[in-house]
Amino acid sequence: MKTLFKELHEAWLATQFTGFMSQTQSRQTLYEFSNILFKHLTWLENDFIKNKITYNYNIKQVPIRVTHLSSMLNNIIQRITSIESKLDSCGDGDITFRMKSDLEYMKAVLAQLPEEEVAEAFDINRAYPNVELSEEARDALTIFLFEESYKEYELIMVYNYSKANSNDAFLNRIYQILIDESFFHLRSFGQMMADMGILGVPRSLMEEIYKFEDLEQFLKDGIQEEIGAKEECKQLAAAVSDSSEHFASFFTFINNQENYHIALMEEALAHINNK
């Protein structure tokens, strides 16, 4: 089942990032399918926990550089076929029955999605449509997108692990909101990376990142990181404000969203300190 879990994790990322390449309605289908695969991942994770089986989020790198969307769609279909062949390794028949039904449907839909040329998502042109960026702003935005796309993936997995391994309803509500927020940010940044021709799947996580022992310290560090991210957004908004009002307001919007994340983490911190 550990191989099944790993392959599912890789298929989720492959599907999510293929969604970023697409410039058509296929993007929405791929987003929805990636949501389903992520949900499957949490089902298997809960089964590991229920059966007291240790697990981790180690995965292989997920290659996505293609010229045509069909190459990735075929790749995802192959990944799903491999997942289907391993479903029996999960002992919970209810879970695998539901997964099988979802996976069969997804394969049929993926095979019908229209062809698209997607080479521009990887051509490193770093030009943003309808925006003129100075070299300095372009470099800053490039580094920001790599740092933050990884960070959002990391946060999704950290909060997911924390949620899966906690029975505290108050904390789990906060973890779920933070997961949803990070999904939104990952999708915003992933689309921007594709538009700039620098799309890549984030690297895998070291176990100690999500298997931390001190939740209080994790939250304190998290608040500091969010404050740092706010500052970066502020600087980026200023750097691009001359060339793009849209960009500047986007980064101001992201900056303000970080306030909500900080408030949630402070709420979680207060909760564990009052216990």
Binding site: Q61, I124, G200
Partner: peptide, 18 residues
């Protein structure tokens, strides 16, 4: 500086993983 060669390493780091 984010030149093309470095960006290649960011997009697809070589030898990454356990």
């Amino acid at each position: 500086n984010a030149d093309a060669q470095l960006i290649e390493h960011m997009m697809n780091p070589k030898n990454y993983g356990d």
